[in-house]
Design a protein around this nucleic acid. Sequence first.
DNA 1: GCAAGGTC
Length: 613
Amino acid sequence: MLSGKVLIVAEKDSVARTVAAYLSGGKVKVLRVGKIKTYHFTWRGCSCVALGLRGHIMDFDFEERYNSWLRVSPEVLFKVDPVLVVREETVKYVRVLRYYASRVNTIILALDSDSEGEAISYEVILATYSVNPRLRYYRALFSAITKRDIEKAFNSLTAPRPEIAKKVFARMILDLTLGAVFTRVLTLSVRKYLGDKLGSRFLSYGPCQSPVLNLVVQRALEREKFKPEKYYTIHVYAKTEDGKPLRLDHVRTYRSKEEAQKVAQRVKEHGFAKVTLVRNIKVKIPPPKPLDTVELERRLSRFFNIRAKIALDIAEELYRNGYISYPRTETTIYPPTLNLREILQELLATEHREYVQELLAQPKLTPTRGNTDDKAHPPIYPTAGATREELLSRFRRREFWIVYDFVTRHFLATLSPPARVLRQEVIAKAENVELRVTGVKILELGYWRIYPFEKVSEKIVPELRPGEKLRILRVEVRENETKPPPYLSESELLKLMRAYGIGTDATMQDHIHTNVVRGYFRIFRKRCIPTELGKTLILVLSKHASRLVDPHFRARMEKLLSEIVQGRDPRSVIEEMKREAYQYYLRLRGKLDEIGRELAEAFLKTFRYARSK
DNA sequence: GCAAGGTC
């Protein structure tokens, strides 16, 4: 099937390098063209060159003449087709692609086996077919960067799937069109009220960023609407028969203070409580599953108050420097080809040496296992052992060490035994008033030894037996108040985004970050607090175009787009979505003055506040 | 100057 000369294109350099190494059997010549590395080798008698891109090489944009926000009415953008253009930063890649394309007879598209990879494949075809009419294109689909998978993919090449590429292109067109139209109309609405005060700022809308903002705002509104209510609880201080002190709580709460006091009085007069139930349950707490991107971000936020964007930026840098594996993954199962013992050997160079030795001494390693596999990248794990000093001197920032050490501990935890605790519960009755005390006793630390972030605090209840009498010393009625729900934490937000299907593992933190940069919400002590501007933006959009900010909007759009893969004409899908968006546009346009006034007022509050802080 | 998705 193949003969002569072959160009292999991968999504990133590391994959091109690995493919070359596996197919060549080891003999690879590396040539640099500017900053781009090309890998030359022989495979099945063909002379091959492999190179890695940096993701997409093309992008959609509106033609130059639509760039004026003032002279071009936003609705015009619904009627024009954005054009696919080579990105400035990737012109050099296209040049190299074309150079080789004119000198080979076959291009193998070894891009990631997801829809983005299919789209990038198509971009490569668009960039090269004109320089060599005899070119043949094949697709190599591998589900892991392992020798077996790569060889299998290259021995069973398939055809590119343009319908998947077209779905991605349709998404790009819709994201751009909706983003541009609504960003411009919102920004223009406040112009006449704000003038120069707007500065270089603008009010953005996006099919991912805005539903994310909505989630944050809804929680804040719940919080604001919340009316605290008083309630009363009863607490009993008692002594066991052998003299140990013990506090029991009445299982009920009361709205009325008088009623609570009456019950408390009855308990007090009764003088003792009789133990009716002693329950001790041994519970196993399993170690965490192998780490994916979202979980890395969520845990670093929860455990260390590190923002998701910072977490991924640092993980990226650690990856580039060879300390951890590729940080953008949805996989939570270690592939069978991953040599866990080898990684442990590496980790002997860390300060967890002794713990690592214990694990290595075990005859069999049994890692935990999640249930997701993106078929592209393994879970995140450390790839080199390093000390605190090494990381601190190399990166100069404490967070690098925190992230690296976290990844290491998490990896070790997944190979560790569960923690074991004893959950204790004692019920006692004074007259007919039910009292309870609960406790936790740690039986075995298990993985908590290396992963103390999840360790529970111990509270031990003295040993009691049913029928035992507890002498009541004091009874207390406490006044409490119901509390509003807290602002959404960044960790919860990421979880919700994943559940609603907003963004991808690699972009979720971006959508959060965009909202922060736009001044829509702040993150303070791990929690997302919307500004006046963020709240007003959601209020305005909810009133006139609620679907655009609905958390389900992204998933709905994806579902519609997937019809393209089933054979539907992309143009008809794009038109359908645009028609709907146009209706929302008309509604907003009908209320432009009112909307502009509200947003302008909120804008001033938000940025006056930001400056005065 | 608009978005979201790759990648560094």
